[in-house]
Each structure stands twice: as C-alpha cells, then as structure tokens.
Write a protein that binds this DNA or RNA. Sequence first.
DNA 1: ACACCCGGGACTCCCCGTTTAT
DNA 2: ATAAACGGGGAGTCCCGGGTGT
Lengths: 211, 211, 211, 211
Amino acid sequence: MVQQARALATRETILAAAGVVFSNSTYSKATLLDIITEAGVTQGALYFHFDGKHQLACEVIKRQHQAAVTLSTGPFSRHASGIEGVVRLTAALTEQLISDPIVRGGLRLTTESPELFPDFVSRPFLGWIDACEGYVSRAIEEGDVACDVDTAEIARFIVASYTGAQVVSYGLTEWADIYESLEQTWRFILRGILVAERHGEIDHLAAFVHG
Amino acid sequence: MVQQARALATRETILAAAGVVFSNSTYSKATLLDIITEAGVTQGALYFHFDGKHQLACEVIKRQHQAAVTLSTGPFSRHASGIEGVVRLTAALTEQLISDPIVRGGLRLTTESPELFPDFVSRPFLGWIDACEGYVSRAIEEGDVACDVDTAEIARFIVASYTGAQVVSYGLTEWADIYESLEQTWRFILRGILVAERHGEIDHLAAFVHG
Amino acid sequence: MVQQARALATRETILAAAGVVFSNSTYSKATLLDIITEAGVTQGALYFHFDGKHQLACEVIKRQHQAAVTLSTGPFSRHASGIEGVVRLTAALTEQLISDPIVRGGLRLTTESPELFPDFVSRPFLGWIDACEGYVSRAIEEGDVACDVDTAEIARFIVASYTGAQVVSYGLTEWADIYESLEQTWRFILRGILVAERHGEIDHLAAFVHG
Amino acid sequence: MVQQARALATRETILAAAGVVFSNSTYSKATLLDIITEAGVTQGALYFHFDGKHQLACEVIKRQHQAAVTLSTGPFSRHASGIEGVVRLTAALTEQLISDPIVRGGLRLTTESPELFPDFVSRPFLGWIDACEGYVSRAIEEGDVACDVDTAEIARFIVASYTGAQVVSYGLTEWADIYESLEQTWRFILRGILVAERHGEIDHLAAFVHG
DNA sequence: ACACCCGGGACTCCCCGTTTAT
DNA sequence: ATAAACGGGGAGTCCCGGGTGT
C-alpha cells in the first residue's frame, strides 16, 4: 500500500508539472524533457504512469474540466443572492485560471489545438454559460435583473466579457490588474442589466470579485 | 528595376501563405514546408526574402498591425456619430479577423506565443483601445454617453467585450454566429453606457454591426 | 526488434515514392520535395534511411534489377516450350514496365543518365539477353528454331526488338497499344527464326503475349 | 553584310555547342555555362541570339527535325532497290545520330522531357515510319517482299528494331558495335520479310549498312 | 563582358517521442 | 526506474543557375 501511495504521488507530481509546462508553451513546443525536469522524475517514470505525451495532455484537460465543474456547481448557490453568486463565480474561475497551472494548461491545450483533443471539445464555455444562467435566473426572481432580457443571452454576454477581460488583461499587464479589470467589467455589466433601483449597489456588488 | 516587381510579388505570396498557415496552426506546429507548399515557392525563395521562420512570423504580425491601424484611423470618423463609429469599427475589425488570414494569423501568433514576440504583444489592444476612446469622447460630447464615466475605462471594456465575444463565438460555433453575437454584445454595452434618453435607439445602433 | 518493422515500412514507402517520381521526371528534375510529398514523410525520415538523392536512385535501380531477375529466372521454364517461354517472358517484362513505377523509374534513370550510374547501365540488357538465350537454346533443341543461327545473336535481336517496340509504342501512343505492338513484333521475329514447318503456329505463339 | 556573316557564324557555333551539351546531359542538368564554355562565347552573345535556355533547346530540336527530313526524303530513292534504300536509310539515320550532336541532342530533349516541348511532339518516329513505308512498298512492287504483309506494320517493325538496336548497343558498348549490330538486325529482319527466293542475298543486302 | 538579382534545391544538424535493454 | 538507442521531424545553410542590368 505504501508503494501505491508513492506511485500516486509521483503521478500527481507529473500531472502538476505537465500543467505548468503546457500552460507556458504550446502542445508541440512543450517537450517531455521540460516536464520531467519540472517534475524531477525520469522518462521511465513518466512512461510508467502515462502512455505518452498525448495521453498526458488529455489527463491535464480532464483535471481542468473537473475543477471547472467543481466551481460551477459550487458553494455560492446557498448563502447569497444570484447576482453575488455570479460575480463570485467569475472571480473564482479567474482565481483558478491564475493560480492553477493545470486549469490554465488544460484550457490552453483545448483552445489552441482542438483538433488534437476532439473528445474534449465540449468546450468549457458551455459549462460556464450554464452555470451563469442559473444565477441570472435567480437574480431575475429576486428582482435584481429586469425580466425582459433572455437569461441565456445575459449569461453568454457575462462569460464573453469576463473572458475578454482576462485576455486583454493578459495582453496588457500579464494579469497584474486582472481583479481590478474584472471589477470594472462587472460595473459596466451591472449598469446594463440591473434594474434601475439597484444601481446604487453596483460598486458594492462588483467588489465581490475580491472575495 | 523591373525585376524587383517579381521579387515583391513573391514576397507577398509568401507572406499571404504564411498568414494562412499560421492562422490554422500553432507557431511551432506550422512548418516551413507547409508555407512553401501553400505559397508554391521553394525554401530558397523564402530564405531570400526572410531570415527564417521567426522573422517571417514577425512580418505577418506587422501586417496585421498595419491592417488594424488602417481601420482604426479609418473612414468612420467623419460622417457619423461617435457611437455609430465605434460600432462600425468593431464590426470592421471583426470582418478583418474573419476574412483576412494575415490578420488572423498575426493575432494567433501574438496571443498564443507572446513570449516569442514580446515586442508586439500589447500593441493591438492598445491601438484598439485608443481608437475606441476617440469615438467614446465624441459620443460624450454629442451627449450620447453619460459624462460621469472614464473614457479609457469604457474603451477598454468595449475592446474586452468584443474580444470576448469573438473568442466565445469561435469556441461555440467557429464564428458562424459572430455578427449576431457582436450585435447582442453591443446591445448590452449600450444599455450600460448610453444616457437614458437614448435607450430607445439601442437596437438601431447595434444593427450597425451589419454594415 | 519489433521497432524495425516501422522503419522497414517507412523505407519501402520512400522507395515506392521515389519510383513514382523518378519514373515521371528526369533525375535532375525530380526533387526530394516531390519524393517526400509523394511518400508523406519528411526529409528527416528520408535521410535516415538513405544517404541522399543519388543513393536513393541507386536503390530504386537495384529494385528494378531484382524484379527483372525474379522474372527472368521465373516460372516459364518448366511447363512450356522454349518459344512460348520467351514470348511470355517479354510480355511479363512489359507488364512490369507498365505497372511497376519502381521498374519504370529504375529503367529511366539508367537509360537517361547512365553517367550517373555507371555500375548499373548494362546490367538489365545483359540479364534479359541471358534469360532469352536460355529459352532460345531450348527452342533449338526442341526443333522450333533453325540450328544455324547463333543463340546469343538471336537473343540480342529479341531484346533489341521488344525494347524498340516499347520505345516506339511510348513515343506514339504512350503505351496504349503496347501489347498489340509486341504481338506484331513477335510475328515478325518468329517469321525470321522459326523453322519453316512451324510457321503455321506463328499467330498462336505470338498470342502468348496476352498471357 | 560581313557583320551579319559573323553573327550567323556565332549563332551556329552556339547551336552546335548546345547540341553537344544537350546530347550529353538532361535539359535541367545542362547549364548555360556549359554551353557558352563549349562555344567559347559569352552569356551576352548567347542572349543576343536566343531568348534563353528553352528557346535555344527548341532551335536544336528544329534542326534535328530538318536533318531527319532531309535524310528521309533523301538520295536513296533513285538509284537503288527499295530494300537497299531502306537499309541505307537506317544506316544514314544511325550515322546522323552518332556523328551529329544536334540530332542526338534534339532527340534526347524531346524524348526525355516532352512536357517542355509540347509543340514538337510530332515525334520523329512517325516521319521515320513514313519514310520506311515508302521503301517497303517499292520492295513489294519489286517482288522482294511478300505481298501478304501490311507495309505500315513492316515499317513500324523496322523502325522499332533499329531503334532498339541503337538503345541496346548504347547500353552495352556505347555504340562501339552499332554498325555490326545494325547489320545483324537487318539479317533477322530480312529473314522475316524477304520472299524465299531472295534469302540468298540477305548477307549482301545487310552489308549496305556500311555504306 | 560582367556582376548582381532572385530563386531552386540538396544536404546538415539538432531535437524529440518512444522503445528496449539492463 | 535508468540510460541508451531508435526512428523521424524540421529549421537553417549552402551553393548553383537563369536571367537582367550596366
């Protein structure tokens, strides 16, 4: 049993290293040497736990999907309003993206080389949009959002805007100002979707991106 | 110097082919063989005109920047309101992205492998934001946009949102619904930034994305 | 050693592609790019298996010689008369020439650029003449051919005539009428070498070119 | 006028040199440097008289055609029997092939790279066959050849056989034994086509290949 | 008569994913 | 689990050759 424990640990080490490497290069630019160096293991160990580069990348992508699902079905449902939930969700997803190399790596792999991972093209966007739509529906029930807008449209707009904010923030500052930018983004989104009587709370709500 | 004409034509051919190839693969996955096959030239021709793969990619990126600048300083300034101008600008940039392989290739190169092209990374976003800011200022002067918002913030939000709309549209439908998505995006943006008395014109203004 | 299987397959693929390319161009007009494109491999693979263009061409020629030898020492010896054997042999060599790119390529290389392959030039003719001579000797023993002619002379005449028939047929119809032409050629040859009492069988014997 | 004379001489010098070079290499392997070196002129002179490599090759081919026509409509018609005429014709064509580089060069160009000279694909074979057929008809009228054979078939067989004899002789001895070989070839041809009562003259007739 | 321009293509070199032997 | 070998991918170098201006 202790053997298995060590084996599992090695496996996790390799996966983490793969996440780091895949998040910093392209699939074809990343080399196994990079990964085993980062992981501090040998090629033999890698090939014992994984079938090769491609399968290793697939495992990274699977982990990323799991992480996204965990967040989306996550802990904001209960104790907060719909609006607060969706703001917190986008903040949490952003947090994941920044801090978890596996998430960043998995995302990069599927978006940059979708043809190599056709089984995973159930792209993450759909999951995010779904999750957001749930919160938006609650927000409409709670009277925060006008009922004349389509929840799916709003959800997609939210996902697109925070995705765009991440892309632009990376391009300009490599995410140094990502939370500020996300907060600002939310202020504009909320100005567009909140009912008039809630506009006074915009700054307060947008501040939830900081946790 | 009549000979130079052929050289220029060859150079353009290679550049166009590089745009096509780089827009369909990653930098490291794209091979010179792909490019010379697409261009119908030989390695000799390629290496006569360019120093290598990297410089060729840089030239593609420069072209993409030129194209963006041409649009940004372009023809929407005169005969239209600031709001109409900025809507049309984003539509034109989108059109470029979809139809011009060089633009798509250049963008893909900088966004996917920024470490390889450090001198070009932030340039497109900055240019777009600048161009948008000009229109937004005009829109404020024209009374369409509330004067209590920072023009730079609005401009960045616009750029982020339309960038995000493109990314999401590509992920979901490979740009099949890009113009619809962009129009919808503009409806939400306008709800957030137009002064109240102009809200009736939102649908009309957003429709400018179709030209 | 199971790995070697892939290597062998790759080698054969390259050789076959080289046959196709060399059979459709001159040695100097054929490019390695043509070959690797036809083979679907890369230059790296080619240079792993072969030392360069020239050695690759030599291998094609060797294959062509092997194919000719296989036919010449082949299955017509036993169950047929000498005359029938030699007629069938020329038909089989013709069939090879038409259907096997490696044979055509090898032949084209040696005939067009003999100075590049000095060790291989005379080999095919000598082999064919030898093979024919064997059949002719049998035919003399069997009483079909007059004994006052030199077997070597006859053999060389046969080889020259069917070679010439191929060349002319290619020049006039690109081999569309090659078998008809070969049959006709045999009718004239047989009129010259068969003993008088066998002249009635000429049409029957010449028809063996069709298998 | 003296100027023109020298110009013409230069032109002829270049053409002759081109014949030599093209007869010893392939079109693509032959270089202009080879030709101007052989001719002892400069590139400028060459480009004054010809538009380039390709046109120069075309001129060589034209000359070769002229030479063939001259022979085929030539001097054997009058003072000799049909059989003697056709034997002499093949000998003369062979003589041309061996001694005149332009003929050899032109022939090599059209047969090796027909795609480069599509206007000259009226391949020489047709001309030779026609010329032979004329002699064969005369020979039938003169009672030397049996009247039950098709003249066109005989003519094609003759052309094919002497062509094959040349090819084989070149492959085996680089034409050292070409006239012997041609004589032997004629002996076999004549055994096949002469009427029985003329068989005694075969050796005598075949000897006409020596002039 | 020469040098330069543009382009063609063989070849070298180094890297990497994978497998085998140990 | 390690080290070495295998099979292959691809960028870049080099030299040559046709054509054009001078």
